[in-house]
Nucleic acid binder design. Structure first.
Lengths: 219, 219
DNA sequence: TCATTAGTGAACGGCGTCGTTCATTATTAT
DNA sequence: ATAATAATGAACGACGCCGTTCACTAATGA
C-alpha cells in the first residue's frame, strides 16, 4: 500500500494543478464520448499526465468519475446560488427573476451537459444521485418555496403549500423543455423565448395564488 | 460481401425470432449495464445466439443500438397511443384522464428506463433523437393541444394558443418529477400521488383558461 | 546535503472485445 | 435429391485497455 499522502510534510508536494487537469480532461471526454466509453488512458493523455500520476490521484475509474461529478456539482452550485431575498424589489419581479435565472441556467451548456452525462449513469451511483438531486433540483425547489413563503407573509399570495406551489410554478416554466434539453432539440429557439415563457408562467401562477387586489376586499 | 438476404426466395429463411431475441437481450443489457458498457458478445450470449448470427442481422454496434431503440419506440408509441376524443365524457374529465395517462406512463418502468438509457446516448444520434422527440414528447404535446382545441371549440375554454397552453398544463402536471424519474428518487411516493397532482394541475389550468361560468357573463 | 515524495515514460502480462473465417449442421424452396 | 441460405461453435489475429512495475528525473523539507 503506497498512500504516503496521509503522512504530512515531507518531500515534493502534490501538484493540485494535475488533479484539476485530470478532472477537466475526464469531464470533457465523458461529455464527448460517454462515460463508459472513456478510457483511463485517454483521460491521462488528454490531461497530459502520466497514467501513474492519474492513479496516484484517483485509485480507480469510479473514484475518478465521482470526483469529476462532485466537482461539477460544486460549479453548478455556485452558478445557481445567490437567491438573495431582496425585499426592495416587488415580489412579482422576484418571481420573474427567479424563473429567468433557473431557466437560463437550465439551458446553459454546463447544465445540459451535466444532466445528460449524469442522468444515465447516476442510477448506478445511488448516493451521488441523491446528492445531485438535493443540491440541484431539490435546492431550487426549496429556494422557490422559500420565496413563495415570503410572498405569503407579505400578503402578496394566498395561503398555500409552498412545496406544491413551487412545483407548479416551476412546472409552468419548464413545460416540455426538459425533453428538448436532454435531446438537444430546438434549444436555441427555446432559449430565445425564455422571458416570455417565464412571464406566462408567472401570470398563470398569480391567477391561481395571487392575493385578491385590495379594492375587491369583500367580506 | 455476403448479403444474400437481398436475393428473394431460396434456401433457409431468416429466423426473425432470433432477431427479436437479439433486440430483447440488447435492450436488457443496455438498461442493466449501460449502452457503451455492453459488448456484442454479451448480447449474443444473452440472446442465446451465435455471434455470427448477430452480425448477419445487424452489421455493427450502432445498427443494433438504433434498431433496439426504434423497436422500443414502437412499443412506447402503442402503449401511449389511443387518445380517443370522447365527446360523451365531460371535457374536464378528459383533461384529468389525459394527465393521469401521461403521468402514469412517465412513471412506468419502460418509460423511465427508455428515457434514461436514451437521453445520454442520443446526443450522438441526432436523427434518432429527433425521431424520439417527435414520437414521444412531441406527440404528447400535439395530442394535448388537440384536446385543448376541442375544449375551445366547445366553449369550455377561452381562446388560447394550444401549443403554449398544452405546455403549461403538462408543466403543471410534471413539476420537478422529471428529475426524480431520471435519478430514481422518490418514484414510488410520487406515483402514489399522481391523481392529486393531476387534479391540482387541472384546477389551476382551468382558473387560467376556463371559460367564464354562464352566470357571470358581463359584457 | 540528503531523505522523501511526486511525476515521467516505457514496458509488462493479462484480459476482453472486435470482426472474421472455417467446417459443420439445420432448414427451406425447387 | 439438390442447391441455397441460416445458424452454430470454435478459433483466429489484432487491438485497446487495465493496473502495475521499473528506472529515472523533479521538487520540496529538514
Amino acid at each position: 500500500m503506497r498512500t504516503p499522502s496521509s503522512g504530512r510534510s515531507a518531500g515534493r508536494p502534490r501538484d493540485h494543478e494535475k488533479g484539476r487537469a485530470i478532472l477537466d480532461a475526464a469531464w470533457f471526454l465523458f461529455l464527448e464520448r460517454g462515460v463508459e466509453a472513456t478510457s483511463i488512458e485517454a483521460i491521462a493523455a488528454a490531461a497530459k499526465v502520466s497514467k501513474v500520476t492519474l492513479y496516484s490521484h484517483y485509485p480507480d475509474r469510479t473514484a475518478l468519475f465521482e470526483a469529476s461529478v462532485r466537482r461539477e456539482m460544486e460549479r453548478i452550485e455556485q452558478a445557481q446560488g445567490l437567491h438573495r431575498h431582496d425585499t426592495a424589489t416587488p415580489f412579482i419581479d422576484q418571481l420573474r427573476a427567479f424563473g429567468l435565472g433557473i431557466m437560463f441556467f437550465l439551458t446553459s451548456r454546463p447544465a445540459i451537459d451535466f444532466y445528460n452525462v449524469v442522468a444515465g449513469e447516476l442510477r448506478r451511483h445511488e448516493d451521488l444521485a441523491r446528492a445531485f438531486y438535493d443540491l440541484g433540483p431539490g435546492r431550487t425547489r426549496a429556494n422557490l418555496a422559500a420565496l413563495l413563503n415570503a410572498g405569503v407573509r407579505s400578503k402578496q399570495l394566498k395561503k398555500l403549500d409552498p412545496h406544491i406551489a413551487a412545483e407548479e410554478l416551476f412546472g409552468l416554466w419548464q413545460g416540455f423543455t426538459n425533453f428538448q434539453f436532454s435531446l438537444g432539440i430546438d434549444i436555441d429557439a427555446t432559449r430565445a423565448d425564455l422571458s416570455a415563457r417565464v412571464e406566462r408562467g408567472v401570470r398563470i401562477f398569480m391567477l391561481a395564488y395571487g392575493a385578491k387586489p385590495v379594492h375587491s376586499r369583500l367580506r
